[in-house]
Design a protein around this nucleic acid. Sequence first.
DNA 1: TCTGGGGTCCTAGGACCC
DNA 2: TCTGGGGTCCTAGGACCC
Length: 417
Amino acid sequence: MSPPIRRIAHLDMDAFFASVELLRYPQLKGLPVVIGGGRRRADDELLVRFADRPLSRIPVEAFPLLKDYVGRGVITTATYPARQFGVGSAMGMMKAAKLCPQAIVLPVDFDEVRRCSRTFKSVIAEIAPVMEDRGIDEVYIDFTEVPGGQREGGRVLARLIQKSIFEALGLTCSIGVAPNKLIAKMASEFNKPNGISILFEEDVQSKIWPLAVRKINGIGPKSEAKLHRLHLHTIGDLAAQSREWLVDNFGQAYGHWMHDAAWGRDDRPVVTESEPVSMSRETTFERDLHAVRDRAELGAIFTDLCTRVADDLQRKGYVGRTIGIKLRYDDFRTATRDLTLDDYTADGATIRKAAGQCLKRVDLSRKLRLLGVRVGKLARADAVAAEAPAQAAAAPLASEHTPDLFQDLQPAASEPP
DNA sequence: TCTGGGGTCCTAGGACCC
DNA sequence: TCTGGGGTCCTAGGACCC
């Protein structure tokens, strides 16, 4: 018997956030629906107005429309009918409203989406345990050693997984099965929605090379633009370049990676467990704020962000040593500052104090549109407590700060730019 | 009317140590 | 005193992904 051939699957839930909403509002099936944007639930009013009937009986005409949307949000997902109009993920809501004003807008229901995410992943794990989490709606699965994983190149197992997820949730997904993660990821897009695509090594030339370079997971808008300037458009164009030429133009690491990617080579394993590196909270304001003129408001937001990161750390059992801030100016430039402490912390006041130090080192004369707080260099709280019990116990800083203020930033803000 | 929020990884310079 | 290096940590920014 010959050894099993490596078969890796990539599974992507179809229009996940939107599909989850359609479970609740089946009357919207087949219509252009867009998820995302608002801070406030756009359907709140609906739920009050039609409190007397089941959600599935709320008339379609009553739903909020994209043309009435105001705010700074972006689209998280669009249903396939909405995509027909050119609306897509990460697009600003205002731009989308121009393309498809009649689309229905619904906010993200994170709790429900997370619940569905856990369910579909546990359904997969029961069938094929070597699974890598790639975010809320995607996973890689190693089919190689799964009984039946080799049949028809993986198609039989992929079908079983699709069917099991549909039975558990009523949601569809698309699956690509290929010799590695890189090709599987591209393959999963071939037959969307509710599709399966099986690729082998020998298909790279015919199925992968004609695709745009941007289809490679790892080539983003910047690299795409640079490749276009060099007159390279397809993955085949990329594969035709020598390794040396790519290294000369894109650097050691990226150049070698690009060459391998273009030839469909990728030996990354499917990783079933990983530890977080950082945790952060950030928020874009409803209107741009000024460090001095809107001091009180900013101070409250800043303290709240620190508190929320601290809660996240404590809830998940982590502590961190590097505290950082991020701000985005009204012209969309981004600045970050960070500070590494001697001791690990998950304490809101300690984080607030360190973040306040960071704030003093950044230009605050321009208006801000976003503020964020990050904690990095994470370690498990129990591991650190076991190593240094005396330090972990002491937390004398909690009362040092009044809860409002952005007062740390006043001196720097009053200096000339 | 521009462009969310949560992440990871890489690069590059300077400090500091051996 | 000069010259040369290697290694690690810290910091800032940026590309990319979901």
